[in-house]
């Protein structure tokens, strides 16, 4: 169910998100422990965040499953 969103909380300090589901990819953002995110399943071990820019264009952002816990 790739379209079913889930609420999650960042587990650790300074967690990176990436522009592709890979730790070799361009880093998009850093999140602090406790930040609440809405995530969507994408591939094994990774979730996507589906960020939308102010002009409505969507970027790509992925976070490792191990870096979040579900509420």
């Amino acid at each position: 169910m790739a379209n079913s969103s889930r609420k999650a909380t960042v587990r650790n300090k300074e967690v990176c998100t990436y522009a592709r589901p890979s730790k070799k990819a361009i880093i998009v953002k850093h999140y602090d422990k406790g930040v609440q995110l809405t995530v969507y399943p994408i591939i094994k071990g990774w979730y996507e965040l589906r960020p939308v820019d102010v002009d409505g264009i969507m970027n790509t952002e992925f976070i490792e499953e191990s870096e979040i816990k579900f509420n």
């Binding site: 522009a19 592709r20 890979s22 070799k24 990819a25 361009i26 264009i57 970027n59 790509t60």
Partner: peptide, 14 residues
């Protein structure tokens, strides 16, 4: 220009 870096990044990491 906005997203091309992600495309090319996936290619240089093959």
């Amino acid at each position: 220009e906005r997203h091309l870096n992600v495309t090319l990044d996936s290619l240089i990491n093959q």
